[in-house]
Amino acid sequence: MRPPDGATAIFEAQRPRLLRLAYRMLGSMAEAEDIVQDAWLRWQRVDVAEVETPAAYLNRTVTRLCLDAMSSARARRETYVGAWLPEPVAEPPDEAMRPDELTLTLMLALERLSPLERAAFLLHDVFDVPLDEVASTLGRDAAAVRQLASRARRHVREARPRYKVERGEGDRLARAFFTAAQNGDVGALQALLAENVVLRSDGGGKVIAFLNPVSGLARVLRLYAGLHRKRITREAVFLRPMWIDGLPGYVSRERGGILQTTAFEIEDSRIVAIYITRNPDKLGQIVGVLDNTIPPGPSH
């Protein structure tokens, strides 16, 4: 096989970082992959010898493509059926391999920012891009970018988890939740959930999901008791525990063969938020992980 040329080698070295940046900007791995592919096509038309800092050039290209895409993405979300959640992305088992500390909860906090605030925060605070380079990328002066990042930082700080969950504890809670839900054990569920727990479910209008958030311990317990009576949770199959965007959770096969991810935000050993993704359009990355890790046949 012929080794890659210089331009290809430079781009491929940056591809993982560019993909993470685009995903953090858009909340969709599929859209992020399209953005990075577009950046690659543009890179092929560039005289690489004239690019002083390829990493900065590619960061700028991907960021601007994301900003262009975000206006149409936000318009689509205004007509989205039910709750919208970021596309779940499986985290590597080794925490040292995690590229940043943005959890699914923080990704939702980023959704409340303007596109420029989001870009400034991600580039400067998460990807360590120098302020003057961020300013050049966004077409703003450094003082304006500093204000954008500062406003974004305040929003994200409010959503940052106050309780660090160890991987073993997270996996234990995820399995305990699945078992309690499958068995209809309301007492066990109550012991796992916080009083202010909130459940959000994303089906995107493609599969059945709860259209609105379910808030409060009593309502969530009634919901799962009802799902058990209807045999819905009894038919679920636990495929594997999985950390999803920094949160503990699991992947399951639900009634009708529907693939589902369930992720948990945990504080003081209690679940304060449940994030369920069922929209098949958002589960491509998860399917890829399962194809490489799940042996044939059901696993409980």
Rank of each mutant, 00 (worst) to 15 (best):
L199K: 14
A273V: 06
P99I: 14
D245K: 08
V48M: 13
G297P: 07
P295M: 05
I294M: 07
L67D: 11
A9N: 10
A96T: 15
G184C: 03
P93I: 12
A188C: 02
S72R: 15
A236W: 14
D245F: 00
V62K: 12
S215R: 15
S136E: 15
D38W: 02
R240K: 11
D268Y: 07
V51S: 04
A218L: 00
T277A: 04
T103A: 04
N183S: 02
A75D: 13
P4H: 11
L113R: 12
H228Y: 08
A49N: 11
V126D: 11
A174K: 07
G82N: 09
P130S: 05
W243D: 03
T53C: 02
R172E: 13
V237R: 15
F264W: 00
T63R: 04
G256C: 03
H155W: 10
P3C: 08
R222V: 00
E95A: 06
E78P: 04
A7W: 10
R24P: 02
E267V: 10
Q182P: 00
R74V: 03
R64L: 07
G284L: 03
V126K: 12
H124N: 02
A56V: 14
Y163P: 01
A55Q: 13
V287P: 04
G246S: 07
R42Y: 01
V251T: 14
R219Q: 01
E91H: 03
L18D: 11
V36M: 06
R20K: 09
P115Q: 10
L19P: 00
D5W: 00
R42A: 01
A109R: 06
D94P: 06
K164N: 03
E235T: 11
M107L: 15
E91K: 01
S269F: 10
R24E: 05
L108D: 11
P92I: 11
P88W: 14
L67K: 11
L106W: 10
E87R: 00
A9I: 12
A73I: 15
Q44K: 06
A191I: 09
D291W: 09
T137P: 03
